[in-house]
Design a protein around this nucleic acid. Structure first.
Lengths: 211, 211
DNA sequence: TCAGAGTTGGAATGGCAATTCCAACTCTTG
DNA sequence: CAAGAGTTGGAATTGCCATTCCAACTCTGA
């Protein structure tokens, strides 16, 4: 329903083993370069060099740069959700929320707060440039926000969170705090803004906890 | 101390009246285009056409595209602070904070949630592309965040806010909520995420209000 | 008023990016 | 073990972009 990747499934049957490998290598190299230099700052020749492929291979697998960018958007979303997966499915306590956000903060510190959020950076750059990218990124944020909301719903169902809490709104607020916090952290080269931002929202969520 | 514009002051003496007018026209046209299409999506020829100037004029006044981008960053910061000025200097009550954030939300709705935040978009696109732009944008966020913090400080000084409140952290959290909320609003083409985000943080600030 | 600084037009340059093309090659499948 | 589909290399094409150049023009201050 909200997984455009499924639409491409049929086509994937037409890829041979080495073809699939090449395709993946291109996406990974493009994602890495675009994360560090932005979509506009990453040229096809750059990607060719990084992935060790020829131009024809990129155009063979993705049609044009736009197609590649779309693939990168979905790759980054899948990657981010996968790497957060163990924690992401258990966000049904205040401690779990704090631990999850702390992990991201520590990762930021580890890389000197360079680059910001993979999804957020793509969103900001592509939102007004490519309508289909915007749509995909909207779906990406939905996929990312869903586990947060689900965790809060579970807390509420168990009676740990007040009935008065609008859990959907709170999940969105936390996602916004994460995005805004990461942007400020990137610009200021310090994870402190991110920590303050998520901390404020989680504290607020905690205020709905039923003793 | 934190106003790099002052460094250029001496040079401005060398501008004649029509020169200053041309320079301003270029910055305004560039700011408008870069807001809608991003820095990378705005070419010098685009700016020439929009401002009605020749290439030599742009290079005469800004040296190169990087210089123009820097000027746009500072122009957008000044513009945003100016247009929020009446409210910005009176953010010393919960109601004032809510009213201020609501104004921004209404403005977003008015333009269909297109474009996001002028400063935030530039920050995301330039943070890893141009070190001096990153520095300037960091200063921009500082300038923007300061009135928020000052308002909270005044509330705390008056005894309206608990001594336990870390007002600097709260001001940063609100700025992050604004940025993240605007990004989500831009991607989702709805001001709801922004409203939820700022509402959560202001509610949290309100929890420090002394009865 | 007039000299010199400041301003402007617009063509020219050089480079690089996106994309195309096609021949040669390799894998899968019957 | 052949087709035939899928894959690859790399040169060629096209177009746009950032930037330069310089001659002509206009403003300002003495």
């Amino acid at each position: 329903m909200n997984s455009p990747a499924d639409v491409e499934e049929p086509e994937r049957r037409r890829l041979t083993k080495p073809g699939r490998k090449t395709r993946d290598r291109i996406i990974e190299a493009a994602a890495e370069l675009m994360f560090h230099h932005g979509v506009g700052g990453t040229s096809i020749p750059d990607i060719q060099a990084a992935a060790g492929v020829s131009a024809s291979q990129i155009y063979h697998y993705f049609g044009d740069k736009r197609g590649l960018v779309l693939a990168v958007v979905n790759f980054q979303t899948d990657t981010k959700l996968d790497q957060q997966r163990p924690l992401l499915d258990k966000l049904d306590s205040i401690d779990a929320l704090r631990a999850w956000c702390d992990t991201a903060a520590d990762r930021q510190d580890a890389m000197g707060c360079v680059g910001g959020c993979e999804i957020g950076s793509l969103a900001s750059e592509l939102a007004e440039r490519d309508p289909s990218a915007r749509t995909d990124l909207s779906a990406s944020f939905d996929r990312w926000e869903l586990p947060i909301r689900s965790g809060l719903v579970r807390m509420q169902t168990r009676g740990e969170l007040s009935e008065r809490a609008d859990v959907a709104a709170l999940a969105t607020a936390l996602m916004a705090a994460i995005q805004g916090g990461m942007l400020l952290a990137q610009v200021r080269r310090s994870s402190t803004p991110y920590r303050h931002a998520v901390s404020a929202v989680i504290d607020h969520i905690e205020s709905y906890v039923v003793q």
